[in-house]
Write a protein that binds this DNA or RNA. Structure first.
Length: 343
DNA sequence: AACCCGGGGTC
DNA sequence: GACCCAGGGTT
C-alpha cells in the first residue's frame, strides 16, 4: 500500500489531465523561449480566441527576436492594432532590442523579470515551460481555481490575496513532475473547466480535492471579487475633411490611452458640446466607445478643408486616403473603414 | 496599495 | 449591463 500526500495527488491529477486534454496551440509544438514569450505577451488579459490570429500574424512577420528588434515600432503597433493594451506591443519591441544585443535569452524567471513588459506571471510561464523551472504562474484562471479548491474567500483584487495564492501554488509545484505541464494544466483547467459562471465540476480532475465542490456555495460566491470602479466619462471631438485627398494624423505619446497609435486632430470637452463651436463643420459620426475604465463619447466633425482645423496642424503627418495608414484606435479604424469604402 | 491601460466575448 | 480574460507599469 502506497500513501500519497494531498499535494502529490493534486499535482499529478493536474498534469495527467493536462496531457490528455490540452488544447492544440501553436507555441506548444515547439516551446522555445521566443515563441512562448511572444504568446504570453499577446495573451495577457486576452482570451485565446481573441488573440490567436494576432499571434500568428506577429510570428509570421517577426519569426525571430532579431526580426522583431529590427522592425519599426509603427510596424509592430500596426500588427497589434485592435488588440488593446498597446504598452504590451511597445514593451515587446523594446525587450526584443535588449535581447537582440545578447548572446542568448535568459533562462531564469528572475532574469526575465528585469525586462520591460515581463512580470511575475510571464517570467514564470516562460521558464517553467521552456526550462522546467519550479515557479508558479498565477493568472486569472489560477486565482479562480485555487480560490475554489482551497475555499479562499478573500477579495482576489487585493494584492495580499494574490500573494497568498502565489505562495500556495509555489508550494504545490514542488510536487510536480513537470512544472511547465503543472502550470499550464492549472490554467487550462480554469479556462476550460473551472469557468467563472458554470464550472463543469463533473469533469474536473480536482473534484475530490476541491473544497468548493464539497460545499453548498454558488459559483458566483467563490472567488469573491470586489466591484470595479465606475467608468470615467470622456468626450472626444475629432476633426476630419471628407473633401480633402489626405488625412492628418499624429502619433500619441505613451501617457493616457492609445499610446503610440495615430489619431486625427482632436479636442476634449467636459460636456457634449464641441469646444470649437464656431468652426464651420458638420457632425458626420457620433458614437460611444467602451473601454474597461472609460466611456468615450466621440464625435467626428467634417470640415470644408483642413484649413478650417481648430487644432494646430504643424506637428501632424499627412497620409493619403486609401493608402495604408498607421495603427489607429478602434473608433477611428472603424470610421475610416466606413468612409473609405464609399469612395 | 491604488490606479491606469483595450477590446471583444459571454450571459 | 455586468463580468470575464494565460497582467504589467506607474504613482
Amino acid at each position: 500500500m502506497k500513501f500519497f500526500m494531498i499535494e502529490q495527488v493534486f499535482s499529478q491529477n493536474i498534469e495527467n489531465w493536462y496531457r490528455n486534454n490540452k488544447r492544440d496551440l501553436p507555441w506548444r509544438h515547439h516551446p522555445e523561449p521566443y515563441f512562448v514569450w511572444l504568446a504570453e505577451i499577446v495573451f495577457q488579459q486576452t482570451q485565446i480566441a481573441q488573440g490567436l490570429s494576432y499571434y500568428k500574424r506577429l510570428l509570421k512577420a517577426f519569426p525571430t527576436v532579431n526580426a522583431l528588434a529590427n522592425a519599426q515600432q509603427d510596424e509592430v503597433l500596426k500588427l497589434w492594432e485592435g488588440l488593446g493594451y498597446y504598452s504590451r506591443a511597445r514593451n515587446l519591441h523594446l525587450t526584443a532590442q535588449i535581447l537582440n544585443s545578447r548572446k542568448q535569452l535568459p533562462q531564469t524567471a528572475a532574469e526575465w523579470l528585469k525586462l520591460p513588459g515581463v512580470g511575475p506571471y510571464t517570467a514564470a510561464a516562460i521558464t517553467s515551460v521552456c526550462f522546467g523551472e519550479r515557479v508558479a504562474c498565477v493568472d486569472g484562471n489560477v486565482l479562480r481555481v485555487i480560490a475554489r479548491t482551497h475555499f479562499i474567500t478573500d477579495d482576489i483584487r487585493k494584492s495580499t490575496t494574490v500573494k497568498t495564492i502565489q505562495a500556495l501554488v509555489n508550494s504545490l509545484i514542488e510536487y510536480a513532475d513537470d512544472p511547465g505541464d503543472f502550470n499550464q494544466g492549472l490554467m487550462e483547467i480554469g479556462a476550460t473547466v473551472c469557468k467563472p459562471k458554470a464550472p463543469q465540476c463533473n469533469r474536473c480532475p480536482l473534484q475530490y480535492e476541491c473544497a468548493f465542490y464539497r460545499s453548498e456555495a454558488l459559483p458566483s460566491a467563490v472567488p469573491f471579487k470586489s466591484k470595479p470602479q465606475k467608468r470615467k466619462v470622456r468626450h472626444l471631438h475629432f476633426y476630419y475633411s471628407s473633401k480633402a485627398e489626405d488625412v492628418f494624423l499624429f502619433k500619441r505619446n505613451d501617457k493616457d490611452i492609445w499610446g503610440g497609435l495615430y489619431v486625427l486632430p482632436f479636442e476634449e470637452s467636459n460636456g457634449k458640446d464641441c469646444p470649437s463651436s464656431t468652426i464651420n463643420a458638420s457632425l458626420i459620426k457620433k458614437n460611444t466607445h467602451l473601454l474597461t475604465h472609460q466611456q468615450i463619447h466621440y464625435y467626428i466633425w467634417d470640415m470644408e478643408s483642413w484649413y478650417h482645423s481648430p487644432v494646430e496642424l504643424k506637428h501632424f503627418s499627412r497620409f493619403v486616403k486609401g493608402r495604408d495608414l498607421p495603427a489607429l484606435p478602434r473608433p477611428l479604424q472603424q470610421f475610416f473603414n466606413e468612409s473609405f469604402a464609399k469612395m
